[in-house]
């Protein structure tokens, strides 16, 4: 069913920083690029627990979550985030990751539902294009 009435659905994105990273330059650059592409971007700030990230995604009803991590704790934190998303019924949210993530970890991350992983230095256009093409088209 197409929407009732006119709907101008904006893509809402949460950019989240799990773990103990001490800077967020990369996350902010991505946030800005997504905003400049017409999206509404919510940023959590540093040092978020998986629980806080998922709760924020729920309250803000986002379509997309971008996880940015530099500390190397992704294999500990990402599975917990994906598990909590499932628990809360947020299964239609597109999740991607960026930061410093070794090549060999990527297959495992994809298996748990992280749809794409962008390495350091990925041009922001590429991330914007990916989000525009893959954000879920939700009815509610």
């Amino acid at each position: 069913m197409q929407s009732e009435g006119k709907s101008e659905r904006k893509i809402r994105v949460l950019i989240a920083k799990p773990g103990l990273d001490s800077h967020d330059r990369g996350a902010k650059v991505v946030a800005r690029a997504l905003r400049d592409a017409g999206m509404e971007v919510i940023y959590t700030g540093l040092r978020q627990t998986p629980e806080q990230i998922v709760e924020t995604a729920l309250q803000e009803d986002v379509d997309v979550i971008g996880l940015s991590i530099l500390s190397g704790a992704h294999m500990a934190l990402f599975p917990r985030i994906m598990e909590l998303l499932k628990e809360k019924g947020l299964t239609d949210v597109l999740v991607f990751a960026g930061g410093i993530i070794p090549e060999e970890d990527i297959p495992e991350l994809k298996k748990i539902g992280i749809r794409e992983v962008f390495g350091p230095g990925t041009p922001t256009d590429k991330i914007v294009k990916y989000v525009l093409e893959n954000a879920p088209k939700r009815e509610h």
């Binding site: 400049d36 592409a37 919510i42 700030g45």
Partner: peptide, 17 residues
């Protein structure tokens, strides 16, 4: 651009849980 950076929440994140 029609986009927005919604940054107020950064200061309130500790209330999230």
């Amino acid at each position: 651009t029609g986009g927005a950076f919604l940054g107020d929440r950064i200061r309130m994140q500790e209330l999230t849980m």
